[in-house]
Structures are given as structure tokens and as C-alpha cells.
């Protein structure tokens, strides 16, 4: 029942070509330490599923680990567009499928509920239906109106970052849960990274905040600052100074190369030191 793993073991457990759902939302609680570990390895060819994506999609695209992305949104909010996502879309170096926020949830939920699709009106009258052949229109057999069939999304893996987890895979999320519970339930294998591993007794004190249940979880990795440079409420905020550094680096191949070797490929174990060390991060990001 003990599911504690190390980052390297997670990387070894995820085969090239896997479909991976990633939790969090734009600059909030992305499982960045796991994502960096995947970005640092050799083979990728991953098929990503994100609802509101940001740096995780961008970093994996920028390190050529992605063949396909299902997304409702990929961006850095007011900080700017996602540079590697933008490049890959414009130069068509990967495949993309545009969904919407609720339909990604519905697609995951269809898998959870073991049905081939879930119905919705969302998307009618938009070009999402024009460019995304996964959606089908059908006639409601009861009332006769036209609805969208949202096909089941079936991730092989889900990566989710939580505030606290016990070694058995129960996870506490203290801020916004985003779509993380759906990702964890829908994936065949779910890996949590957690700011801190605590005992099951301590975890139970969090009551309803224990949003992720161990029956859906296969591995747990301890990762302090594991969401950096996205935020992990209420522990720390997104590191916007680092976001700026990232966006500036992504402007040219040479600076991007340097960014990746400094923060991703060469020193993944020392990442926290590379971004300033825990004391500096506390001073800068804790509220």
C-alpha cells in the first residue's frame, strides 16, 4: 500500500507515447517538478490532455516531448502567450485538438462513468466544432434537439500536485481543486506530487479537503516547491519574476537552450537551489 516513489521512478514508469492528463490551472498548482523530470528525459511523444494549461504544456513542447495536445486553453494569463505552444501551433510541429473548459471535464467524466460520451450544448455555434472532429452532433432521443456528444477522454496517466499526501495516495488540496479529481479518477494510473508527505492520521484532520482518494492513486512523490514556478495556494504564489525569465529565454533558440540546461536538463535535482534556494523563495513567494 505504500506508494512512495522518486521522480526518477515516475519517469521510468511512463512509457513514450503515453497519454497524460495534467492537473492544475494555468499558473496555479501545476505538477512542475514531475513535468521537468519528464522534460529532461529522452523519449517523449506524449499526448497531453489539459483543461487550462500553461507552463507545463509549454515546457514539454519546448523540449520536444509532445506529439499531440488536447486543450481548452494554454497561456500565461496576463503575463503573455505561451511561447513554445504558440510556435508549435504556428509551425505545426505537433498536433492540436481544441476543446473547451467544460468539455474537457465532460470527456474525463465520461471515462469515469464508463460511457462513450456525455451530451452538452457547449460548443454549438462555434468553430470548435468545425476544427475538432472528435465532437459529434446528435439528435436527443427524448426531446429531439441537437446536442454535442463529447467523447470520453482516456488518459493513461494523470499528474497532479497536492498540498499534502499520505504514503497511500490520499491527497489534500487546500486551494482551488480545478479539474484534478476528474484527472485522478479518469486516468488508468495517477501520480501525485505533494509539498509534504504526512501520516494518514494527520491527513484525516483535513476532512473535506482530502479531495484525492487513494483508490485512484498509484504513486506519490514528495516535492517541496513542486509546483514552482506556478503557485500552490495557500503556501506560495506563482513566481512571476521567473515567468518573465522563462518568457524572455523562450525568445531565441540559444537562450532557450541555456534556460533548459540551467533549470531542466543538467541540474534537475538542484532546481530549488537554481531558482534561489528555499529561503529566498519563502521571502519572495510566501504570503
Amino acid at each position: 500500500m505504500n506508494k512512495l516513489m522518486r521522480h526518477t521512478e515516475v519517469v521510468d514508469a511512463i512509457p513514450a507515447g503515453s497519454t497524460i492528463a495534467i492537473g492544475g490551472s494555468s499558473l496555479s498548482r501545476k505538477p512542475m517538478s514531475l513535468v521537468r523530470a519528464l522534460a529532461a528525459r529522452g523519449a517523449g511523444d506524449f499526448r497531453l490532455i489539459v483543461d487550462v494549461g500553461g507552463p507545463e504544456v509549454d515546457l514539454l513542447l519546448g523540449t520536444h516531448k509532445v506529439s499531440r495536445v488536447v486543450y481548452a486553453f494554454v497561456g500565461f494569463e496576463i503575463m503573455g502567450l505561451a511561447p513554445n505552444f504558440r510556435r508549435a501551433r504556428e509551425q505545426q510541429t505537433a498536433e492540436f485538438e481544441e476543446w473547451t473548459e467544460f468539455t474537457v471535464m465532460a470527456g474525463l467524466d465520461a471515462t469515469v462513468k464508463s460511457v462513450p460520451f456525455l451530451p452538452t450544448h457547449a460548443g454549438l455555434g462555434t468553430d470548435v466544432l468545425t476544427v475538432n472532429p472528435s465532437f459529434r452532433l446528435f439528435e436527443d432521443p427524448i426531446g429531439g434537439e441537437t446536442l454535442v456528444a463529447v467523447p470520453a477522454l482516456k488518459p493513461d496517466f494523470a499528474l497532479v500536485h497536492v498540498n499534502l499526501a499520505d504514503p497511500f495516495g490520499n491527497g489534500v488540496i487546500l486551494g482551488d481543486g480545478h479539474v484534478d479529481v476528474l484527472c485522478a479518477k479518469a486516468a488508468r494510473h495517477t501520480i501525485l506530487s505533494a509539498e509534504r508527505i504526512v501520516s494518514p492520521e494527520e491527513l484525516q484532520r483535513y476532512g473535506r479537503d482530502v479531495q484525492i482518494h487513494r483508490i485512484h492513486v498509484d504513486g506519490v512523490v514528495e516535492a517541496a516547491w513542486g509546483a514552482h514556478f506556478t503557485g500552490c495556494a495557500p503556501y506560495y504564489r506563482a513566481d512571476l519574476a521567473h515567468v518573465q525569465e522563462y518568457l524572455a529565454a523562450a525568445r531565441t533558440p540559444a537562450t532557450w537552450e541555456a534556460y533548459c540546461s540551467r533549470y531542466v536538463t543538467d541540474v534537475p535535482a538542484d532546481y530549488i537551489l537554481a531558482v534561489g534556494g528555499p529561503e529566498e523563495l519563502v521571502g519572495k513567494l510566501e504570503v
Binding site: 487550462v52 481548452a72 486553453f73 494554454v74 502567450l81 504558440r86 501551433r89 481544441e98 457547449a122 455555434g125
Partner: peptide, 17 residues
Amino acid sequence: SPRVAMVGSRGIPEDTS
């Protein structure tokens, strides 16, 4: 093959239906 790829439709299709 966009000239500028922006962010994706997010939740707007839900609102406009």
C-alpha cells in the same frame, strides 16, 4: 496554420450556449 496562435476557447463556448 495560424499567423498568431492565441490561447484557446477556454469556457466561452459554454457561456455563449
